[in-house]
Every structure is written in structure tokens, then in C-alpha cells.
Design a protein around this nucleic acid. Structure first.
Lengths: 144, 144
DNA sequence: TACTTTCCTAGTGGTTTTATATGATTATAT
DNA sequence: ATATAATCATATAAAACCACTAGGAAAGTA
């Protein structure tokens, strides 16, 4: 029942971009330095986010990444799903293909359905903007 | 973010015992047959449940297992945790040893804490008795 | 004793995770 | 044009984890 590092790092990358959301492009090298993750590993993580249209990119000198939308338009769940796939606690809930042949008579499936719902409802109730506000508060606490 | 087969099978074993909760000992062989899981694999799953005091056992002919308490006294969460360990979505929430050095300044930890809470609150809100009632209802539906 | 059932330990093939490394491609600045 | 700086694509690999399989010891019953 663990979220993988890819999912966690994706969230940190997106939050880093949200904290530097001036419209300027942010080179991945800078994010890597701030977050303490190697550039090469980050490339693997941001690539699916780029393909999913979550970030805009520009190559070349003074290139980099920036958010494609407002921080409030990203739920944490939507970010995690790009890297993790469905956040379902069992495979039988993921797709119809994976559906268990005994689903109709399964006495535990409604339990798993309920768990699936509370997980997804929660991760979709928090946006990147919420995390930005939290980080801003943390930083001002630090100054005090 | 998946619950392993051990956790899912543990739940099915406990539910099977709850459905046959007459006080009689139930041989694992019978559960294995009903659930379509090999005996040898089930032994590995019920062993931690036995050591945790969740089931009582007796060896030898006409031996077997039975629940140690009433079905209403087991939350699904308590059963899953025996096989899965803590149901925390990140390692840093599991133990103080795993705590991240940057926990104090981490802008995502409160998000993960919230996810941890909704997961554990939910799994502890459902008991084995609830699943027994569900299965009984399913079976009577089937008869109709 | 013969049989049944739990209990204990070890091994194994496969997949996933978590990276690291190398290099190619593309775009910008000068 | 050239150098620079970034994205993009693959390949590799150690380590951990998963999902079993297997053999036999111990303990209880008939």
C-alpha cells in the first residue's frame, strides 16, 4: 500500500514548478538541485507529465518547463495517476478487463470499492494550490 | 498502491472462519478448497494471524482453526495490518525511524498524513461482522 | 500405531522498483 | 555557424518484493 517514489517525486516537481510559476521557464537542473534528485531520474518522471499535457516544455538554451494550467486546476490525484496509474487498492477495480470472475458473488468487493472511493475522493480534494499555500505558510513560519 | 494477495487472502480466510463460526474447529484444508487457494500458501498466511492471537488453533486429527473473538471485534484494518504491516501510503509515516529528515519543512507531509488518516479510518470502520452480513445477503439474493 | 493437521524453514522464478549511464536530438544565444 | 543548454530515448542492473512451491518436523486424535 505504498505510493512509489515516482509518484512522490512527481508531486514535488509539480509543486516546485507551482512555487516558481511566474511564466518563465524553469530548467530541470534547477529543480533537481532544489529537490535533491538526480537530473536523469527527474527526466524520466517529468516526461509522462509532459506527454499528459500537465507541463509545457521548451528545449534549447534558456529552455525549461512550466505549468500548463493554474495550480488550482491540478488535483494531487490527477498528478499521482499520471505516474502511478489508477490508485485502486486492488487490480479487480482498475479496469473491466481485470474484473474478477467471481465479482458478483464476492463478499469483499464492496469493501474494496469503499476504500477505493475514500482514497480517490481525498487525493482529488487537494490541489496544487493548497500545497503552495502550505509551503508559503511553512516558509513564513520559518522566518518568524 | 495495491494491497497484496496476502492481505486479501487473509481477509477471505477470516471471513470464511466467520461464516463457519460455530465453535467447531475448521481445518485449513476445507477453507483452501472453498476459497480456491492452495493449502501450503494458506498456511503461510494464517500463521501470522495465529501468532497475533486472531485465531485459535489445534493440531492433529479433527484439529483446525477458529476465530478467537466475535466477528464484530475484528476490524478489516486490524486483519490487513497483520499481513501488510502499517497501511501508510509512505514509509516516512510508518515509524519514527523512517521519518524524513526534512519532515518539518516538508510541504507534502500533511497531504500524506491526511491520506493515511482516511485510509485507516475507513478500514477500521468495517468489521468482519459487516462482511458476514453482506455475504449472507448475497447468498439469499442468490436463492431468490 | 496410523493418520491427520498444524507448524516451521527454505527455496525459486518472476516482476517491479529505483535508479545510473550513454548518447541522440532539438532549440537558443552569440 | 558554432557552442551551449536543454529535452528525449534506450539500455542496463542491483535490489527488493511478490506469489507461490516444497519438504519435513511436531503435535494431537482415533
Amino acid at each position: 500500500m505504498k505510493v512509489s517514489t515516482k509518484g512522490r517525486y512527481a508531486l514535488r516537481i509539480m509543486l516546485d514548478l507551482a512555487m516558481h510559476n511566474s511564466g518563465e521557464l524553469v530548467p530541470l537542473k534547477d529543480i533537481a538541485r532544489r529537490q535533491g534528485i538526480t537530473l536523469k531520474y527527474m527526466e524520466q518522471i517529468i516526461s509522462p507529465l509532459s506527454k499528459a499535457g500537465f507541463v509545457q516544455s521548451l528545449r534549447g538554451s534558456s529552455g525549461g518547463y512550466r505549468l500548463a494550467r493554474n495550480p488550482s486546476d491540478y488535483t494531487v490525484g490527477s498528478i499521482l495517476r499520471v505516474l502511478e496509474g489508477p490508485l485502486a487498492p486492488t487490480a479487480c477495480l482498475e479496469t473491466e478487463i481485470n474484473e474478477c470472475p467471481r465479482a458478483e458473488s464476492c463478499p469483499t468487493i464492496s469493501f474494496w470499492n469503499g476504500l477505493n472511493k475514500v482514497i480517490n475522493d481525498y487525493v482529488d480534494s487537494v490541489t496544487l494550490e493548497d500545497l503552495v499555500n502550505e509551503e508559503t505558510a511553512l516558509q513564513s513560519d520559518y522566518v518568524i
